[in-house]
């Protein structure tokens, strides 16, 4: 029995470690490459650990690209995007879950139906609309779509429905109006969902590529992924520069992950949004 247990333990950690190594190798390679000089990139045999580590690539990244500004852009856009998503979606969810109005369930079904529309179908007209409004290369162009997030509405409707109506009635009897009921009773009771939703939304906005690529053409407005993709165009084979840029771009989200690990886990396990 004990030998079998031992064998199981070895088997478990063996597989877990192999998977961890596969997950990590590209990142270790990234770190190693980012400290190589241009010449060391093409040395044979491969230098797994750079023999003469240098900061050349980092200096180049920072001198060629306003990376500090880019990180600021990414933070500003993702935080605004998340706040607006939470606000607008929780308001709509409150109306769907707790207010009676004609067409309630029909409208909610429309929301669900729009989730099926791929972004590629709407992106050309949206590009035209944004262009017409003079919003290309503005923060607003990537932040504004956050007012309509059917998935977030759907998730919050589920949560709001679990709030007993007695709670809301009690507040009404105490003289609270509908806005106070929303802000002081319903919203605080949704905090778990709001927390997980804020993480998934933030991450989605932080890593978003296609729409910002179309909108943020100005170097000073770019988010991290877009800035990185322009680096790819400029330094197609200077992997030390590309790796330094990639590494810098990963630091903020990993810090946030470490701080908010629990919400990340719950958010991801609730399923749904693609990171």
């Amino acid at each position: 029995m004990t030998t079998k247990k031992k064998r199981n333990t070895i088997c478990f950690y063996g597989v877990a470690i192999v998977l961890a190594v596969i997950a990590m190798i590209p990142f270790l390679w990234m770190i190693s490459t980012s400290f190589k000089s241009r010449g060391a990139l093409m040395s044979i045999p491969i230098e797994w650990i750079p023999e003469e580590p240098t900061l050349d690539a980092y200096i180049k990244v920072f001198s060629k690209f306003p990376f500090a500004k880019t990180i600021g852009n990414s933070l500003f856009i993702s935080v605004s995007y998340t706040i607006i998503t939470l606000l607008s979606s929780s308001m709509a969810a409150f109306a769907f879950a707790k207010l009676r109005f004609p067409g309630n369930s029909l409208l909610l079904r429309c929301y669900l139906a729009t989730m099926m529309i791929p972004t590629q179908v709407t992106m050309i007209p949206l590009f035209v609309i944004m262009n017409k409004m003079g919003l290309i290369s503005s923060y607003a162009s990537v932040i504004m779509p956050s007012v309509f997030r059917p998935f977030a509405v759907f998730m919050l409707v589920q949560q709001m429905r679990t709030i007993p109506n007695d709670f809301l009635d009690a507040a009404r009897i105490d003289g609270a109006n509908v806005f106070q009921i929303f802000g002081k009773v319903a919203l605080p009771l949704c905090v778990p969902s709001l927390a997980t939703l804020s993480i998934t939304t933030f991450m989605e906005s932080w890593n978003d590529y296609l729409w910002p690529l179309l909108m943020l053409t100005d170097k000073d407005k770019m988010t991290l992924p877009i800035a990185l993709s322009t680096l790819n165009g400029q330094y197609a084979t200077e992997y030390n520069v590309l790796m330094a840029g990639s590494l810098i771009s990963m630091i903020p989200i990993i810090l946030i992950y470490i701080i908010a690990q629990r919400q990340f886990k719950d958010g991801m396990m609730a399923g749904g949004i693609k990171g």
Binding site: P26, W29, M30, M203
Partner: peptide, 10 residues
Amino acid sequence: LTSWVAASLI
């Protein structure tokens, strides 16, 4: 957690 752009470059 890694963005698709960074992952693709790596």
